[in-house]
Structure formats: structure tokens, C-alpha cells
Design a protein around this nucleic acid. Sequence first.
RNA 1: CGAGAUGAUCGGGCGGUCGCGUGUUUUCACGAGGAAAGUCCGAGUACCGCAGAACAGAAUGCCGGCCAAUUACCGGUGAAGGCGACUUCAAGGAAAGUGCAACAGAAAUAUACCGCCCGAAUAAGGUAAGGGUGGAAAGGCGAGGUAAGAGCUCACCGCCCUUGCGGCAACGCGAGGGGCACAUGUAAACCCCAUUCGGUACAAGAUUGCGAAGAGAUAUAAGGUUGUUCGCCUCUCUUCCAGUAUCGCUCGAACUCAGCGGCAACGUUGAGUCAAGAUAGAUGACCGCCGAAUACAGAACUCGGCUUACAGAUCAUACUCGGUAA
RNA 2: GCAGGAGUCGCCUAAUGGUAUGGCAUCAGCUUCCCAAGCUGACAUUUGCGGGUUCGAGCCCCGUCUCUUGCU
Length: 108
Amino acid sequence: MLKRVYRLTKHGSFGFVYRKGENKASAAFSLFYVRSATFRIGFSVSNKLGKAVVRNKLKRRMRAVIEDMLPLPNYQMVLVAKHKATELDYQAIKNDIRGLFQRAKLTG
RNA sequence: CGAGAUGAUCGGGCGGUCGCGUGUUUUCACGAGGAAAGUCCGAGUACCGCAGAACAGAAUGCCGGCCAAUUACCGGUGAAGGCGACUUCAAGGAAAGUGCAACAGAAAUAUACCGCCCGAAUAAGGUAAGGGUGGAAAGGCGAGGUAAGAGCUCACCGCCCUUGCGGCAACGCGAGGGGCACAUGUAAACCCCAUUCGGUACAAGAUUGCGAAGAGAUAUAAGGUUGUUCGCCUCUCUUCCAGUAUCGCUCGAACUCAGCGGCAACGUUGAGUCAAGAUAGAUGACCGCCGAAUACAGAACUCGGCUUACAGAUCAUACUCGGUAA
RNA sequence: GCAGGAGUCGCCUAAUGGUAUGGCAUCAGCUUCCCAAGCUGACAUUUGCGGGUUCGAGCCCCGUCUCUUGCU
């Protein structure tokens, strides 16, 4: 689990990133990002992707992947899961997200 | 051996590495469920210038028990279903009134189509035994009786009234009488009777820290208390910005084990325990061993009940039915 | 988290407790040299699912599933 300081916590912040940020997408995830003073990231998994157990598990795996990739550059970003993400195992999620960050040139 | 019935239980365990939340400051401890779900009932708790009356509205409806509370729990009664163990049931009132009962049928709450009897008759009359329709056709069935028939009379059953015994009661088992009536069904149709119900739900609300603009001036205003009316109450109210921090937030009708009372729900006594409290929201990643380890599924103020989802495994019974053997 | 609403052919929709209606679409035929339009006919709904009340449920009652709206 990420420490609190690395998390995006306000509803307004999510809106800010969606409005101002650039985005890149893969089959399973979308990434919105905007330059900032510190690194923060938020995770978004829609109600439509499944029941609570499925959504929570997906969020935990996303956090585990990001936690493994630290440190990351100073951006505020939002990682959004798409339908296909529910079908992937941990290793596939990891590869997908790493590829996404490389294409966005955000690797530390 | 096969097919069932009922009542229960479990819902992976152990260890390692890297991380997260809370508490304590650490090398530590604890960290989702039996349904956390649906939100269908019932409460606690909080607030609403205190809780008054009438009407409207809603809910419930056999009896007893239990509970903080409930129509939802437990036990019984009755009815229905099943060969049976057993299961299911919103189960008051239809002579208070109103409505509805398609089609069929002569006729649907009132009647005579066919038939039967009487008769000279195709007239008039008697007749609900038989026919056919229907969910329902003048209590059922048999005998007597009769012109033919009919509770017209009688036996048995049903119904109604009275009454004895048993049971706290619902009700059950009998006895005597009525001679069957305003005569069917539907109240999960309106309704009647009885009982109950103030509103809003922790995003309730409390504390702290703050701003900006505007309006009314003692009443036929505005607002609150409930949907309406009455009654009662109030001096501040409205709009905009910000929406932060702390509390509420987990010790509670609590849980575990044992004894006692009770068929049970449950009660009671003793001992022990403190066991999530997040706030964009904490349980993940990797590995080893046992191994069938795979289901349904993730706390958001808290409890009691109900309902629904669920892999696999286990236990109990003077349980039931069938087959085989002795 | 809390409070409401809806579910009927492939799509849209009607129905007072009594055979579930109509339009579009689809299929076949007629018409045309061919297509479209037009005309005629056919097809398909056991009313989301499971129970109950009733002689009889799309309709009344209970449970459940799915979708959806509002508050925040």
C-alpha cells in the first residue's frame, strides 16, 4: 500500500487532472497525468467493472504495481481501469502498466 | 443397500520476504462475513421552539410464550399438501352495507328448458328426484312417503343453538335440541371491528475557526410542529462563498466457555476476553509445507430478526419409506 | 449510505380480474422489366423470475432479479 503522501485524496484533484492532463491508454488502463510539485497518484475503478470484491482486488494490484515502480517523477496522475483489466492476472497488469508509463515517458 | 426427512457445524491451517491501517512508539499487538449483501421488519442513539385533538393515511389480524422492541422469533391449535418422517399458511367479520362473478347454462341469488305428475288439452297448475352447464344450482346420502315430488318424516354425516368434561387459551371430545332460515363465492375488492403508528436518519448531529450581501419590525406577515384543519410555539430570517479540523466511532440489550431453569425462543449464575474503525476508503505481491483447498462474497454509526447467494466437507436422530438377508 | 420508480413480441406501445392489442421490423404472395411504394396474408409475446389469494391473475399480495431516478 502506498503511503498517504503519495495518494491523490480530493475529488477536486481528480477533476483537475482529468481536465488539464494529457492521457495515454492501453487495452486495460487509461492514464491521465499533469506536471506538479510532488508525485501523487489516484486510482479509479468504475462500478461497472464488477462487484466490490472484484474492484477492491483490482485496486490492490494496481497499487502493488505502482509501489513497486517507485520513485516516479513529480506528476499528479490518475490511473483508470477498463473492462479488460478484470480478466488479467497480476503479471499481465504489471506489464501493461509499465508499458503505459514508458510510452508516456514517465519512468523514474 | 437405495431414496428421503429434520436439526446443526466448518467456510482452510502453519511458516518466510516486501508493503498498508489503527493502537502503542516497537524488535510488538490486532486487522472483514456467515451472510459484511438485500434494506424487508424492529430498536438503540441524535436532532427537530417538546410530542395536544380531529380527520385522512399506513400497518397488523387463531392462541399462549419470549424479548430492549416487532406481524416476521419459539411452542401449540386449525386448515391444506405428502404413503410417511414431515412441510406450508396475512388463519377476525360475508344475517351492517356496496361492488364483482367472463364464457357456458332455462336460470347465478333468482328461476322451470327438457323431463316427471295432474289434466280432454299444445291451456292453467304442481315439482329441484333425473338431464345437461358451471368454480358455485336450493345441505349430502339412503330409506319411508307421495299423483309426481320436496327435511314432508326418519337414520348417519354437515350446519346452527344449548350444554357437560379436558385445556391458561386457540380448540378438542361428548350429550341434548332445532328442522335448515335473509340460503353460493370473493374482504391478498371497497368496507366493518380490534390493536398500533409524530417527523427526519450518523451524509443525524456536536464543538472549533471563519467571511460577504440583503430583508422584515409586533402581525390578516414569515416560519416551525404532520398530509389537511384546529390548537400551540418563535425572533430573527434569506442568499452566496468556503466545506476544513476534531468528536460522533466502537465496552456493547457485547462475545466465549461452563452450570442451572425451560420442549423451545429465551432467562439466569459463575469464570474469562477486549477482538477492524478506515475516510478516494486499510488484507496485496512472491514463495514453501499440509492438502480436496476450490464457492458465495468486502465493514462504513451499532445491535435483534427475516430474506436471498454459496464450492466442498462433517456430525446427529429409539426419524420415514422401499428392497434384501437373518 | 438513504429514499423512490419501471419491467408486455426483435423495437415502440395498449389492455376495468375473464381468449394479451396495434404500429414498425421479418417472412411469403400479388403488383413491376427490376427495385421502392402499395395491397393481402403469415409469424412471434405463457406479460423479468418464483410462490400465494381467486373458479380464473399482465392486473391483487409476498419474495427475488435486472434496469433506472433523486438526495449526498
